[in-house]
Design a protein around this nucleic acid. Structure first.
Lengths: 153, 153
DNA sequence: TTCGATGCAAATAGTTTGCATTCTA
DNA sequence: TAGAATGCAAACTATTTGCATCGAA
């Protein structure tokens, strides 16, 4: 799906670049690894291992975990914890972080630079430099906020 | 331990108030529930169910989960996910949120009002109103930041 | 004495590991 | 053909559920 490829092209590694990264470390370009990478290229949102397995019939969840781990160690893939439930994998894009809704489960990718102001305020207050790639910002999304205010008489 | 009680006294429900809240809903004040509440009053930091079980010998983890769930539904207790690993329970304090370090596992309670600026910036940028009580801000703590800068030549 | 609460065992979800077999380089 | 990768089974961590029994009001 060309659209998905274009959406990633800005900051995610290209498929050929990902394969060379594997070879450069003496790791092997197996069919399973190609398939995982192309499934993530085609995905519109981060996928759980279970969802990935559905899209790659015949694949084994243990092998998927192992392959996602090596791809993540190479910086090609990343996972995010969107609330409870399984981790969700996507191509690693260094310019994108996440916000997620506690109530309805909705989530959104946000350009990192739009969070830089908040990041600096948090660093000033706590000394911690937050990163919302692995554990997102969790709160209430616009439509759940609207529902709560509707509820008031 | 008096100190711990004082630390909570500002915003956590008192033990008698917690017990009345149970009775008010037709729920029962069992020995197990008293023990869970006092263990949380005495705790210096949020506890996992396993840690709670160590402090309450003879208790059953399934019952601990069930009791923590009812106390949480009443707004007396809360849990936070500090990175991977089990949820950690504490008395519900509405004025405290958390920041956690991705690298070393350190975490800190932060007064909510100190995060209000960041909260507003995030709402302006994303429309989401974040709450860092259940899922904390995750990033790099001051001492891990120092280590990274030490590593540079 | 009535329901709610408990303890124990078993089920569930998500992930990890061991090991014999298969495939890439 | 050496060593990495795979598939399958089993272990593991955290949590949930079913059910007979116990206990608080």
């Amino acid at each position: 799906m060309t659209v998905a490829h274009h959406a990633h092209a800005l900051s995610a590694p290209s498929l050929p670049a990902a394969l060379s990264a594997l070879r450069a470390r003496g790791l092997r370009v197996s069919i399973a690894r190609r398939l995982v990478l192309t499934a993530l290229y085609d995905a519109e949102a981060p996928l759980s291992v279970e969802e990935l397995a559905e899209r790659l019939p015949g694949s084994d969840v243990a092998s998927l975990h192992r392959n996602l781990d090596v791809l993540e160690a190479l910086g090609l893939v990343r996972h995010v914890h969107l609330g409870h439930g399984p981790g969700r994998y996507s191509l690693a894009r260094r310019d994108v972080e996440f916000v997620a809704c506690d109530r309805c489960g909705a989530f959104e990718a946000v350009e990192s630079r739009r969070l830089d102001g908040a990041r600096q305020l948090i660093e000033r207050e706590c000394g911690f430099v937050p990163r919302f790639t692995h554990f997102p910002i969790v709160g209430t999304c616009p439509s759940c906020l609207e529902e709560s205010s509707d509820a008031r008489p």
